[in-house]
Write a protein that binds this DNA or RNA. Structure first.
Length: 718
DNA sequence: GTAGGGTTAG
């Protein structure tokens, strides 16, 4: 017999000896039940097969697959265990079932059984499943072993296997390893590229994600919907409106007009500040789901238009869409920042009816909303109904107390957290720490500091930043600076620098503030609006006019930072305090935008100090127009007149207030008006003293003007 | 029968 004949004969023999694989009607029926996930019918047929004694091994195998497809783990497992022999296919189905049910650990166990079994090897279907399981369990070491197994079992170059390895490495944060696998791939599919784009973004490399997408398009790979949905969040995060627009162009060109793609576009435009374009995509959608509406609502919130967010939410409900917990979270956020208790309570009512009020995210948002609307008792009543084990509602409650200036309560709550064994995280510390800034007492700050040291939370830069802030607010710049020095240079970000600079500024150490600012710039940290405000304020408080001017010019020239209202206010305040009134006014005149009330307020304040009526009247004129309801401005102008003895003009200011209804009760005298403000009381005190020609005690003066909180005010005035 | 995809938050 020659070779070919031998082969043919062996093939025929194999076919004859092989078990008949003809599908019986029962098997076809079970396959149909599996495909349609008809569990009840499967159970009925199973019972029938048992009673009629038809439960052959072949049928049992099919039953395992059917139960697995229906997701009925118990029966699948039972029948699977009873089988005398199990093939790769059956193992694969069991693994797939466990993963679909979220039982990744069980899936891994089945895989181990498979490896231990004789004559049954994992195949190109098994590996993607188990790699996914180890990925979801974040078992990177396991994943590496699997990677090794694929290499020794010749599946190391299988496209699906490699793609699942890419996803696994990315999901476990092993970006470099994913890259190595990707670069070594001889054949790449659109899924490989998409996995890389998505993986880079999720691991914080938004720029690389965008670059990989561009490379993909550049090398002629046909993109699909998933490519777009993976790259758009990166554009949104980077606020790369132009890049986002180009992606949008590709979407139109390739007709990738799926709902999910449009949703991603809405989100991208919203995050890039292209609200009109977001709305255009939203309006042109044929069909919108909750995510579409939620993304659009979020767009309005991100762009500061919370009122439109609320009205869109109402339209959404009229259109019959049920908000998700994400939508609710956002709406409560909008209500919180609008101080809109009425709508917030409505949403709360709806949430209760829908029985969504026990979702942690929603509970937390409710606590936050009530706190921001200054209804802390309602926050507490939501809080007491929570399960109290999760950290986030506690954090929201802490922030709520701090927002309402209830520092002692916040600290009390924190102690309770420790007693009740609630997990403390960095966010807890960040919510709590500002409470110590309110108390501004060194002893409690030292206590919390030692806790943060022991627990290791100080190594969190945000926590350390807060700690620096509360130390400087409590008067210990030395401790603040010590903590600043413990932060590794690479982690000294713009926030830490701003806080320490502001700390020195706050205590009048303008020179140190300026020198720290220079150190920061030297260290390569680019100053932002806030740092400039801090350092300019420091100069202003310390009277460092020249330094202030230098920094202001530095901001204009070297950093192309456009000064904002705050910066001009600092400058005007600084020049004004130094008596350089005309320069202050000239600066205002050169402002590239319309000056706000703060700038004019600073000028008026300076005019009062230096008794400059001419400019004071100019400033007041603007202020009365910009904020006609602010009584403080009227008082300041009256004070200015009073200081110069121009009582008639001062009296006119009072009339002006009466005319616009700012003072409901009739005033008997100018003095009464002037006493409304504490600095004016000081002035009156001086006037009384000089007119009577003798020393007048503060208490005597205060007594005569019946101010409340005497001891407090007396200490402030002396 | 296998791989990749969207909105929020403390």
């Amino acid at each position: 017999m020659n070779g070919p004949t031998k082969t043919i004969i062996s093939k025929i023999t194999k076919l004859l000896l092989a078990p008949k694989t003809k599908t019986t009607p029962y098997q076809s029926l079970l396959k149909h039940y599996g495909a349609t996930q008809s569990l009840t019918r499967t159970k009925q047929l199973h019972a029938h097969l048992v009673t009629s004694g038809l439960l052959s091994t072949g049928i049992r195998s099919v039953l395992v697959v059917t139960y697995a497809n229906c997701g009925y783990v118990h029966n699948a497992r039972k029948l699977f265990d009873e089988l005398p022999q199990r093939g790769t296919l059956l193992y694969n189905f069991m693994i797939k079932m466990y993963i679909a049910k979220g039982g990744c650990f069980e899936a891994m166990k089945v895989f181990l059984e498979m490896l231990r079994s004789k004559g049954c090897c994992p195949d190109n279907y098994t590996y993607p499943f188990v790699i996914k399981a180890s990925s979801e369990l974040l078992l990177i070491e396991y994943g590496r072993v699997l990677h090794g197994l694929t290499l020794v079992s010749n599946f190391g170059s299988h496209l699906f296997v490699l793609n699942s390895l890419l996803a696994m490495y990315m999901n476990c944060g092993e970006v470099e390893e994913a890259r190595k696998v990707f670069d070594a791939m001889k054949e790449k599919s659109v899924v490989s590229w998409n996995t890389m784009i998505n993986g880079y973004f999720k691991n914080g490399f938004a720029n690389t994600a965008l670059a990989v997408f561009n490379q993909m398009v550049g090398s002629g790979v046909e993109i699909d919907g998933a490519s777009v949905v993976s790259v758009l969040p990166a554009c949104g995060f980077l606020k790369e409106l132009e890049a986002g627009r180009r992606v949008h162009g590709l979407v139109e060109e390739k007709v990738l007009g799926k709902k999910i793609v449009s949703n991603a576009l809405v989100d991208m435009y919203a995050k890039c500040g292209g609200l009109d374009e977001a709305r255009l995509v939203f309006d042109n959608m044929v069909e919108r789901d909750v995510v579409s509406w939620t993304s659009m609502i979020n767009g309005y919130i991100l762009n500061g238009d919370k009122k439109s967010a609320l009205s869109l939410f109402k339209i959404m409900q009229i259109e019959g869409l049920r908000p998700s917990s994400v939508t609710i979270t956002l709406i409560l956020l909008a209500c919180a920042s609008l101080n809109n208790l009425k709508d917030g309570r409505c949403v709360h009512g709806w949430v209760m009816k829908q029985r969504l009020d026990s979702e942690v995210a929603i509970e937390t948002s409710l606590i936050d909303m009530y706190a921001k609307c200054n209804c802390l008792s309602l926050s507490f009543s939501v809080f007491t109904r929570t399960s109290r084990k999760k950290t986030v509602p506690w954090n929201a409650m802490l922030s709520g107390c701090v927002h309402n200036k209830l520092a002692t309560e916040a600290i009390g709550l924190f102690k309770k957290m420790l007693v009740e064994g609630v997990e403390i995280n960095a966010a807890t510390c960040n919510s709590l720490l500002p409470a110590y800034g309110i108390i501004a007492d060194l002893q409690p700050v030292n206590n919390i500091n030692s806790y943060l040291m022991r627990s290791g939370f100080v190594s969190n830069v945000q926590v350390a930043t807060s700690l620096i802030d509360i130390y400087s607010k409590s008067g210990s710049l030395e401790s603040a600076h010590k903590i600043f020095n413990t932060i590794p240079v690479d982690f000294q970000d713009i926030f830490v620098w701003s806080i320490i600079i502001a700390g020195y500024g706050m205590h009048g150490h303008g020179e140190t503030a300026v020198s720290l600012f220079k150190q920061m710039v030297q260290a390569g940290v680019k100053p932002n609006d806030v740092t400039f405000t801090s350092v300019l304020q420091s100069c202003s408080h310390a009277g460092l006019v020249d330094d202030g001017f230098y920094l202001f010019k530095f901001m204009l020239k070297d950093h192309q930072t456009t000064p904002n209202d705050d910066h001009y206010t600092c400058m005007v305040d600084m020049l004004g305090r130094a008596g350089r009134m005309d320069e202050a006014y000239d600066l205002i005149k050169t402002m590239p935008f319309i000056p706000g009330h703060a700038v004019w307020g600073a000028l008026l304040g300076a005019c009062v100090i230096h008794e400059n009526v001419e400019l004071g009247e100019v400033a007041a004129k603007w202020l009365f127009e910009l904020e006609p309801d602010n009584t403080g401005n009227y008082v300041l102008l009256a004070k200015l007149y009073a200081a110069l003895g121009r009582w008639e003009d001062a009296e006119n200011v009072r009339h002006r207030m009466d005319d616009i209804g700012l003072r409901k009760a009739p005033a008997h005298s100018l003095i009464e008006l002037l006493f409304m403000e504490e600095p004016i009381a000081t002035l009156i005190f001086k006037k009384l003293a000089s007119s009577s020609g003798r020393e007048i005690s503060v208490l005597e003066c205060l007594d005569s003007i019946c101010l409340r909180d005497l001891p407090y005010r007396a200490s402030r005035i002396t």
